[in-house]
Design a protein around this nucleic acid. Structure first.
Lengths: 177, 177
DNA sequence: ACTTTACAAATCTCGATTTGTTTGTATAGT
DNA sequence: ACTATACAAACAAATCGAGATTTGTAAAGT
């Protein structure tokens, strides 16, 4: 049972664990390295997380959770223009994981299917719902769908976050009338 | 020298060769299998094409050429609505290569970089130019760019050609005012 | 609520050898 | 303008065993 452990202790470990997984991939990352990066002993790491697999799941889940919570927060801010809210949200959700360093996170994730269970379906759906809710009008769902497709396409075309932002902004301005 | 060989003989072989490459991948496809599929002897295959590598290049090049020529033809037909011309062209260019069977063609192509040289850059550019030329107005290039991103994104989301068509049509109608 | 040290069991790494497959060419034949 | 057969050289795949690495747990300590 890890539930008795202070939550904030784990969060820092999760962040550096995800980093390490991203750098070397799931297989080639040892618990030793994660522990070192988190400035903790390896048995101490096992005290916080039952297994390497569970640690990986938790690390990815935390990242997804933080991203989607941020998206939900931003999309709810009625004061700022829809266009800016969308750009910020998509950049956070997808643009963040573009580039030589952060791209590997995505690679690790889909090189290890089954390791993550429903997370891979659940969070994207939650993201989509959060976007769709903010877009009013009859074309709301179609627009959301298309924005997501554009985002995925751009991610496969570029390799720098800035390029992602630029291209997505162009698409956004075309799609928002 | 293969230049003395009748061209139409080769074309049929190229089509079935691409099929075979798509089914098994470049490495796991033997000249034996290609020859069998093309109803020709293996030495006969070597009479038509100097090497496996050259055969692969020629097969991909033929497919790309046919696709892009069809796109150029359709986009030039001023009589039919732009929306329909675009849908047809993108479906031919990208939708064709969606699905469990044809998807592997794409896989083979980008699992074997270097095998194809410039083809991979040249044809997509030619396709883009053909699209951009037909879209008038100040947002022409931006629209083209975005349509291509949408197309790539959808290709990564769906696994049936019909789904590709539907989603792309939705995006198209949103982007064309 | 951790650390250090220690350890068995599972897993990965690797080089070496072998075995089987494939390529590309040749040759003789139709 | 091919086919059938045959063949050397290159290449890939499968096997294997020795050695190292890694996982997960335990125990004793602070």
């Amino acid at each position: 049972m890890t539930a008795t452990v202070p939550i904030d202790r784990r969060m820092g470990v999760l962040a550096s664990a995800l980093n390490t997984f991203a750098r070397f991939g799931y297989r080639k990352t040892s618990m030793e390295e994660i522990a070192r990066a988190a400035q903790i002993s390896r048995p101490g790491l096992y005290f916080l997380f039952d297994s390497k697999e569970q640690l990986f799941r938790a690390a990815v889940a935390q990242a997804l959770e933080e991203d989607v919570v941020e998206v939900e927060r931003v999309m709810a801010e009625q004061a700022v223009p829809l266009r800016d809210r969308l750009l910020h949200s998509f950049d956070r959700w997808a643009g963040r994981y573009v580039g030589p360093m952060t791209r590997d996170i995505q690679a690790v994730i889909d090189e290890n299917p089954g390791l993550l269970g429903d997370l891979i379906d659940l969070y994207p759906r939650r993201f989509a719902k959060s976007i769709a809710r903010a877009i009013v009008g009859p074309d709301g769902d179609a627009l959301t769908q298309t924005l997501i497709s554009v985002s995925i396409g751009i991610k496969h075309q570029v390799d720098e976050r800035e390029q992602y932002r630029e291209r997505f902004a162009v698409a956004l301005d075309l799609l928002l009338r």
